[in-house]
């Protein structure tokens, strides 16, 4: 499936001397859900703004739906729905009025706009009295839904969501992401979402890119990413002893001779052993055999959070 709908080539943005985005190359294919992951200030929003033609790149190009986002932003904006990280609405207008306004700005004829607005609101799960309420009284979760409705009313090919899960409660996040997943699959939408919560978006993303300090460190499916980490540093067992170990540890060489052990780290009472296989029973047996008083054994597992952390640590 190689049908690129978003193509960024050596995209760079500098603010003064600070490089917010550094020579970013990224391709997102049609119909996939791509997660742009990174800590705050990594340049995710800047990248998205450049894709929408809302910020000029310092160098490089951004093509979305075949249009150059910098030179022809209007064509891009017609086909791409963008929800900013802090969605705001005109507080004195009702949800329906807000949505109809955006619909009209997108050139939907006045005779259709109300019907389409109502249908879209229904799609995102806003109905009843809520749609005639002023948006000033809306909760964060409802605003997020209205934001999604606004993105969808223009019937886009691509939707870009900047931190869509920010500030909503865990059940709301799950519901919201399921909604995005369903819409994407039903309508064949390409979705690009940015977040700093890996575990929240891992359930919906086909592919993720880890983005730190303006650079894309890794990109691929979550499986590929975790395999890459596992290949390097798979299992880690921490053994706590009752007594402080003298340095250098006399049994270190012998430990390293055990099959699959990669490295040993000793610090006071704590010995950390990494291996390419799960060696916990062998390690415990080794210590018991040598007559150490083992007070605790902890096997460290590499979840996706750790992958994420590890990538950030390294930089």
């Amino acid at each position: 499936m190689t049908n690129p709908i978003i193509e960024l080539k050596r995209l760079t943005k500098t603010y003064g001397g600070f490089k917010a985005v550094n020579e970013l190359d990224l391709t997102v294919n049609k119909g996939e859900i791509f997660g742009l992951l990174g800590p705050n200030g990594a340049g995710k929003t800047t990248t998205i703004l450049m894709m929408m033609g809302l910020t000029e790149p310092s160098s490089g190009t951004a093509h979305v739906c075949g249009f150059n986002a910098t030179k022809d932003p209007l064509s891009v904006k017609r086909l791409v729905g963008y929800m900013p990280d802090s969605v705001g609405f005109y507080d004195t207008m009702t949800a329906l009025e807000n949505l109809m306004y955006v619909g009209e700005l997108n050139g939907i004829p006045g005779s259709e706009v109300e019907g389409r607005a109502l249908a879209t609101l229904d799609l995102v799960g806003l109905s009843g009295d809520a749609i005639h309420k002023k948006t000033g009284a809306y909760s964060r979760g409802m605003k997020q839904r209205l934001g999604l409705a606004e993105v969808l009313i223009k019937d886009p090919e691509v939707i870009i969501l900047d931190e869509p899960t920010l500030g909503i409660d865990p059940s709301g996040v799950k519901e919201f992401l399921t909604l995005i997943l369903r819409l994407s699959r039903e309508k064949g939408l390409t979705v690009l979402l940015s977040s700093h919560h890996l575990h929240q978006v891992q359930q919906v993303c086909d592919r993720v890119g880890i983005f730190v300090k303006g650079e894309l460190l890794a990109e691929g499916t979550i499986d590929t990413l975790s395999n890459r980490i596992f290949a390097e540093k798979s299992y880690e067992v921490h053994v706590s002893l009752a007594n402080v170990v003298d340095l250098p540890w006399k049994d270190e060489a012998e430990m390293l001779q055990l099959e699959a052990v990669q490295s040993v780290r000793v610090q006071d009472q704590l010995i950390g052993i990494t291996s390419s296989k799960d060696l916990t029973p062998d390690i415990v047996r080794f210590f018991v055999h040598k007559g150490y008083e083992v007070s605790g054994v902890q096997k460290k597992e590499y979840g996706l959070e750790e992958i994420y952390e590890r990538y950030f640590e390294r930089n």
């Binding site: 929408m52 809302l54 209007l74 064509s75 904006k77 017609r78 791409v80 729905g81 963008y82 900013p84 969605v87 705001g88 609405f89 955006v102 700005l105 997108n106 050139g107 934001g147 606004e150 223009k154």
Partner: peptide, 9 residues
């Protein structure tokens, strides 16, 4: 930001 993301000059 929202309005600017719509196809308007």
């Amino acid at each position: 930001t929202r309005i600017m993301a719509q196809p308007v000059y």
